[in-house]
Deep mutational scan, measured.
Amino acid sequence: DLPPEQWSHTTVRNALKDLLKDMNQSSLAKECPLSQSMISSIVNSTYYANVSAAKCQEFGRWYKHFKKTK
Rank of each mutant, 00 (worst) to 15 (best):
T69D: 08
W7D: 02
Q25R: 09
N14S: 11
G60E: 09
L34R: 02
N14E: 13
P3I: 08
T46H: 15
H9V: 12
W7Y: 04
W62K: 00
S37V: 10
S37M: 05
P4E: 14
N44G: 12
S41K: 15
C32S: 07
L19F: 05
V12A: 02
S35G: 08
K55E: 14
N24W: 02
R61T: 13
E58V: 04
V51I: 15
F59P: 01
C56G: 01
L19P: 01
E58L: 05
K21Y: 10
R13G: 05
K55H: 05
V43A: 08
D22C: 12
M23N: 08
L19H: 00
L20I: 04
M23F: 15
K64D: 05
R13H: 05
T10S: 12
S35W: 00
T69R: 08
V12Q: 01
K64C: 09
Y63C: 01
K64A: 12
C56D: 00
W7Q: 01
Q6S: 13
W7T: 03
N14A: 11
L16A: 03
G60N: 01
G60S: 04
L20V: 03
S26D: 10
L16D: 01
S41N: 10
V43Y: 07
S35V: 00
V12D: 02
E5L: 06
F66C: 11
K30C: 04
N14D: 10
I42Q: 03
E58F: 01
A53H: 14
Y48Q: 09
Q36A: 10
A29L: 08
M38I: 05
T11C: 04
K21T: 09
Y63P: 01
A49S: 13
T10I: 15
H65G: 10
S27G: 06
R13A: 08
E58Q: 06
Q25E: 14
S26K: 11
N14F: 12
N24V: 04
S35A: 07
T46L: 05
R61Q: 13
S27D: 08
K21I: 14
T46C: 10
Q6K: 13
K30M: 11
E58Y: 00
R13S: 07
S41E: 13
E5S: 06
I42D: 01
W7R: 01
K68V: 06
Y63E: 03
Q25L: 15
G60Y: 02
S45T: 14
S8T: 13
A49E: 08
Q25C: 07
K68L: 09
L19G: 02
S35F: 00
K64E: 15
H65L: 13
A15I: 14
D18L: 09
V43N: 13
A15W: 03
H65C: 06
A49N: 10
S52H: 05
S45W: 05
I42C: 05
C32W: 01
L20R: 04
M23P: 03
F59A: 00
E58W: 00
F59M: 05
I39R: 00
L34T: 01
M23H: 03
K30Q: 07
P4I: 13
Q57P: 02
E5G: 04
F59Y: 02
T46R: 08
S52A: 07
L20A: 04
A29W: 06
T10F: 11
L34S: 01
S35I: 00
S40W: 08
T10Q: 15
T11P: 00
F66L: 09
A29S: 09
K64Q: 14
N14L: 14
V12W: 02
V43M: 12
I42K: 00
L28T: 01
P3F: 03
D22K: 11
A15D: 01
N44W: 03
T10G: 14
L34P: 00
S35Q: 04
T10D: 06
D22G: 10
Y48E: 05
S41P: 03
M38G: 03
A54W: 06
S45P: 13
N50C: 09
Q25G: 09
K21S: 07
H9P: 15
F66R: 07
